[in-house]
Nucleic acid binder design. Structure first.
Lengths: 189, 189
DNA sequence: TCTTAACCACGACAACTGTAGTACTATGAC
DNA sequence: GTCATAGTACTACAGTTGTCGTGGTTAAGA
């Protein structure tokens, strides 16, 4: 198996775009090659089979979705009150808007996880860890609200982003700022 | 195009199972025929092409997910307080558990909606209508909470069900009763 | 009984897919 | 120069897929 990391990453990013644009159904070796603008057959030099490809894409999605440490640090210089939590939520939404392809690819992978235990296990670890990190972060940073605040906000944000990405016109008529504000306010209790 | 309604519905139900079990990728004419235990080629007598098939599946999913009027009426004989809202939420979760295939098929269709305007339009109408119905229902029935209660609960429930169906082990360690109770309580404010 | 139309089973076919294999190229060590 | 090696380009092939056509079956009315 070939190991030119730059090229491999380019192929994975192309795969993410293909997943977002054409779904799991369209994710073929040839589609990846075309998207990455490399000669046909290249992708099959990098991924032994479709399963390995899928797992590799998942790892890549995970890497791309990590928030930058600096932006978190910057936010933490602000006063630790409700409005900071609101800001964090808006940051998440902004990130989802800025990298739709990555989130859509993740959704495809989630459905794939329903039938593929290895992907499910990896995704479960990632997501469960993420939730616990958020709970700990909220507590350590002395942000308002308890464990349940973080968890219920997590689900609400998941639902909101899911809806915005798949059926934008359902959310469009709503006042997003008001919605986030109310959600945070009530989740804190 | 053939129009034996019973057979057509059986094929659509088979298609929903295929979608849930193998994803959009596995949804082929032959897979539907096999699942419905009809001779190969039958499905192609009923659906001119894959697009028409997809749209028909969506309509069928919609029909199957409607809650029964009697169960709603029965619940409405109870006192209109927070615990009734909690009960409604548990009903939704129960329905999702009982008909996983339908919800999973819906998720596949949602991703498909990302790229197919007709499906997106139809789904948007369904979902947006559903939210407005819930808001109106909550108000008319004098259930506690305002419009924002219903909307933020909708997103939280969407996220919760999405998580439970795709990554059950993320939610498993949580106390579901407590979670729903807190979510409702705080959403009402 | 004959007609007609709806319904169904089945096969054909071209297009596409995953996968494996092979040959070409560039680079650097010796 | 030559060799080894990793990376790359390209092709072959068998299996699967969407779609279309064709001919058989059924049932109901004339």
């Amino acid at each position: 198996m070939v190991r030119n990391e730059a090229r491999r990453t380019a192929l994975l990013d192309a795969a993410i775009d293909v997943l977002a644009e054409e779904g799991a159904r369209g994710l073929t070796y040839r589609a990846i090659d075309a998207k990455a603008e490399v000669p046909a057959g290249t992708a099959s030099n990098y991924f032994a089979n479709r399963d390995e490809l899928m797992s590799s894409v998942m790892t890549r999605v995970h890497d791309r979705l990590m928030p930058s440490d600096e932006s978190v640090a910057q936010s933490l210089s602000l006063p630790r009150d409700r409005s900071l939590t609101v800001k964090f939520m808006h940051d998440i939404i902004k990130r989802a808007d800025a990298d739709k392809a990555c989130y859509l690819a993740m959704m495809e992978l989630r459905l794939e996880a329903t039938r593929r235990p290895e992907i499910r296990a990896a995704l479960t670890r990632t997501i469960a860890g993420n939730i616990e990190d958020n709970v700990a972060f909220n507590e350590d940073s002395k942000l308002p609200g308890d464990r349940m605040t973080v968890i219920s906000l997590y689900f609400a944000m998941t639902g909101l982003i899911y809806e915005r990405l798949t059926l934008p016109d359902v959310v469009a008529p709503m006042d997003l700022d008001e919605l986030v504000e109310v959600m945070v306010d009530r989740a804190i209790g």
